[in-house]
């Protein structure tokens, strides 16, 4: 199990597109890895697009990413970097 604490870098928040790309990457590239995202008192499955949207992670929010099983090193790097990237509008 690996955990990484991240501050959302995208000025418009972790909106539909980055969220979609995150969920797609988690689902397709890391099928054997359980992905959990925690923000405040919310803990969600990082492979659920609906939960990801409902998390409404905003600019400067801190989130905690946990990956377990499968390619943990790859998942923590690739998925964590999604939060730390500015996504073009």
């Amino acid at each position: 199990m690996k955990t990484r604490s991240i501050v959302i870098a995208n000025p418009t928040g972790f909106h539909a597109r980055p969220a979609r790309e995150f969920v797609d990457a988690a689902t397709e590239r890391f099928p054997d890895t359980a992905v959990t995202v925690v923000k405040g008192d919310k803990r969600i499955d990082g492979k659920s697009m609906i939960r990801m949207l409902a998390l409404s992670a905003r600019y400067r929010d801190t989130v905690e990413l946990t990956v377990e099983g499968g390619d943990e090193d790859g998942a923590i790097k690739v998925l964590g970097d999604f939060f730390e990237t500015i996504h073009a509008e």
Partner: peptide, 13 residues
């Protein structure tokens, strides 16, 4: 928007 719809549709929940 339709890519997002597709991802929602694939949501196991």
């Amino acid at each position: 928007i339709f890519a997002a719809h597709l991802s929602i549709l694939k949501d196991p929940e």
